[in-house]
Design a protein around this nucleic acid. Sequence first.
DNA 1: CCAATAAGTGTTTTT
DNA 2: CACTTATTGG
Length: 731
Amino acid sequence: MAQRIPYESHLNAAQLDAVTYYGSPLLVLAGAGSGKTRVITYKIAYLINEMSIDPKNILAVTFTNKASEEMKQRVDALLGEKVEVWIRTFHSTAARVLRIMGDAFGIQPRFTIIDQQDQKMILRKIMKEMNLDQDTYKPEKYAALIDRAKDRLLSAEEAESERFSTDPLFFDIYREYQRRLSHENLFDFGDLIFRFCRGLDSNGDALNSVKQRFRYILVDEFQDTNHAQYELIKKLTFPDGNIYVVGDEDQSIYGFRGAVVENIMNFSKEYAYTKIIKLEENYRSFQTILSASSHLIDKNSGRFGKTLFTRKGKGEKIVFFRAASDRGEARFIADRILNLRYNEGYGFADIAVFYRMNAQSRVFESVFSEMGIPYSIVGGFRFYEREEIKDILAYVRLLVNPYDEVSLRRIANKPIRGIGEKTVDALVRSTIECGRPFFHIDNGLEVSLARKKKVESFVESMVKLKEIVDSTYPPEFIRTLFETSGYLDYLKGTGNEERIRNIDELYNAVEEFSKQNPSAPISEFVEEVSLNQNNSDERFKQERTYLITLHNAKGLEFPVVFIAGMEEGIFPHYLAGEQVSELQEERRLCYVGMTRAMEKLYLTAARVRKLYGTSVERGVSKFLLELPQELIVFSEEEPEQRFFSGFTGPSFRRYRFSSGSGSLKQRKIPERSSARPSEISDLKASSRVVHPQFGRGTVVEISGEVAVIRFDDGKKMMFMLNYTPLRKDEE
DNA sequence: CCAATAAGTGTTTTT
DNA sequence: CACTTATTGG
């Protein structure tokens, strides 16, 4: 047994309070960087070590797999051993319980979990059969509506009587969708929570046994819970109230996915005698970054309000750069990164670039490879969403659940074996629709003899695989699957190297999985994958700059952060609409992004951005204007001339670097006739200058490469001379 | 039934 | 631009 954990010396007063508090519900309001995860992990340790609570009776719920992974590791490290505490995401908790207790809830425990792609496919099919024009009624829209209904614990019938939607078609689509899922024994993400809740409602004994098991429940990122998740928690913790939730209303960024901020705001009304503890000391960011972000979030209403403070130094001002184009923006960021790396002692991995939407990552990828910056995209194109990976997994899923029509359709003709859509239709009609697994093939199959032969040989090979699927060591099984299915040869035939590599990658993943879980069947691997949508190329993460969406950035921190695309329409995103609540969510997203930065924060924008084929000119994000201007250094690249539409030629400005480091030399920096730096080199206090956007002003102060200028309209701003097209005023 | 080609289209964030 | 869907010809 390890020696006692010195809670007092590892935690500040508020944290210690939160960790040791016992006896009634606890709400910890944890500001950004205030040690939230620390509190949860120490609390788990405390419950086990000091309160002598059996680890089996503790459930800690998170939202992302990443968070639960990290928490698991930290708890194990703290306690010095692998602990039996359940630390899982909401969805994986639900999936696990449903598999174990399915029978008590009237659920076939071998259900298959489908992702949004599958969901969309099913809806598309349904809508086609209903003869709905897919242009006016988009499957994505209905998918989202169905998700939202499930978040609110509404079945199709309940949604209808509650007038959940004004679109009468929706209820029919939802009903039919659900009918299919249950017929094929498929669960979407929403079902996992929904069915768990319903199961507990319908079976009091089951409810009691689950409550008995999970007597102490901790919830991380509580501000992100939706209605269904909150109800689930309530069912499990009423009336004993051994519930500890941690969250920050200012970091609620999943409203679009059904999260309800009110859950955290009203928590203490739902649970009597709730103890509220605020964590307000920020251990992450320099003063300037913290002040600027606090100032921004102050614009939001309906908050508890916190006063974050840090003992760190002031730090540097936030740099804002407005490039002429999206490529110019990427080039600026790349320049800064090289500078940080080679002149300022930062590693590539100390730096992250955040953006609002995945589509923005492309420019960075291209510019970064040109300039030799190693990068790694977190959660963009997802490994397990790739076609070839989904195909292989579909084979396994079909073997595990032979009613799974989605998977059947996916792989029936991959590799091409002469089983086209019509033939699959017939196959489905004669089996799955009649309530039989698809392996069961008889005379009911109405196709030509030649087709029938092909189907039979396909089914035969699947039956062979099915016989060994549960008993074979997963990596070995996958190998057999590659061979018998002919999939690997099929891929080799297409000559797509990358896909073949991905298949190898999948094999490695299975091997790794089996090493970690020696006795687990392959179906468990599929389960893990289904729930872990986000696993991209994180294995290779050493010494690479990160490219991440703002949503994915939550919970992370970096010494240097760039937030790109600070433009109206991008961030805040134009689809976020006019509503105050939506704008507030965008603002929180900005707050989350800014508070990830420890030492340096850069905000960048592009005047003209090429997105989805066309170039559009955009103004600067309103969030930028909401920040305290005295904490920001502004600079702007001279606008590009556009000769004709679509042409955005090279627009290299003269970026100055103080180093002659090797890898910098290869970068080509074309000269341009108007060399600004020299023009402004003799600036001094009281010089008169002209800025192309802000007009005439007087230099108040110059220090290094930064000049403070008071414009004639009274506005005071700071500029980086290297990047700003300032001219001397000749008047 | 299949592959190649043309046309069209819709653009956030994710468990 | 990138992706899906419809059409065509084999």
